[in-house]
């Protein structure tokens, strides 16, 4: 296949005191694809994701984004590279409406010295983004508190897109959802892929990963054991890798 690598970690290493969470991981993320990262609890998935989203800094190693060696300085630096994370708890403010949540931390402003909020502009842009991802949110002035799990996910993804996210990291997006809402989120991921976004998906659910992902990478004890294309792998093989059995 002629898929293009958009982001690459190069021998990335991270320790917390005595705990060696990520061991010299070199991982390729493919453009416009759903790149799943699976592994047991404590395998180092979350740490690796935090390194990519700028929430943590590596002890060693670096990143190559769109072919260029770069550093990811912090969350703001990650936004600059078009990397946006959708955290597992979604980081939404319950008592605020959909629009303000989508623009949280990157509000549009207008007026002299840009001191006033551009409510109209934010409303319009929020509608556009939500329409693009076919989100079903009837009223964008509704408080997030009153939304369903699927709708919340859409708000959080909308926020990532507004930040100019090209590479969208989703951490266990369906972990707390029911069947119907899980389908909604899977459709959302599909829509994002159709629009050419790159998705990094962390999940526990192997069946789901096989349903939606293009590439499946497995971590074990802080190491990247391997990456398989979905069509060439079997569930049994991936499960064996999660248990730490390297396949040739």
């Amino acid at each position: 296949m002629s898929d293009q690598v958009i982001l690459e970690t190069v021998d990335v290493d991270k320790s917390f005191g005595a705990v060696h969470a990520v061991r010299s991981v070199s991982w390729k993320v493919y453009r416009g694809r759903v790149n799943a990262l699976v592994g047991d609890n404590g395998a180092g998935k979350s740490t690796l994701i935090k390194l990519i989203s700028g929430a943590l800094q590596p002890n060693d190693g670096g990143f190559r984004i769109r072919g260029q060696e770069t550093r990811i300085g912090g969350p703001a630096g990650a936004f600059g590279h078009g990397i946006a994370a959708v955290y597992q708890d979604l980081a939404l403010v319950e008592g605020r409406d959909v629009v303000m949540n989508m623009f949280l931390g990157s509000e549009l402003t207008r007026g002299p010295g840009q001191i006033f909020l551009d409510h109209k502009g934010m409303l319009q842009q929020a509608h556009e983004v939500l329409d693009d991802i076919h989100a079903r949110i009837p009223n964008v002035r509704e408080m997030v508190r009153n939304l369903s799990g699927g709708q919340r996910q859409a708000v959080a993804v909308g926020r990532a897109l507004i930040r100019g996210g090209e590479i969208i990291i989703m951490d266990e997006p369906t972990a707390a959802l029911g069947v119907e809402q899980t389908q909604e989120v899977l459709q959302l991921i599909d829509t994002l892929r159709e629009q050419g976004k790159t998705i990094i998906l962390i999940s526990h659910n192997i069946q789901q990963v096989f349903e939606i992902a293009d590439y499946i990478s497995v971590m074990f004890h802080g190491e990247l054991i391997g990456t398989r294309q979905r069509d060439e792998a079997t569930e049994a093989e991936v499960v064996a890798m999660i248990m730490g059995r390297r396949s040739p």
Partner: peptide, 25 residues
Amino acid sequence: LNQTRFGAHIYALGGNPAAAALNGI
């Protein structure tokens, strides 16, 4: 509170400090 970025951040911080921090506030 209603028309400035600072106000939006005040609401966010009071509503969910963790989320505010993750979004660079």
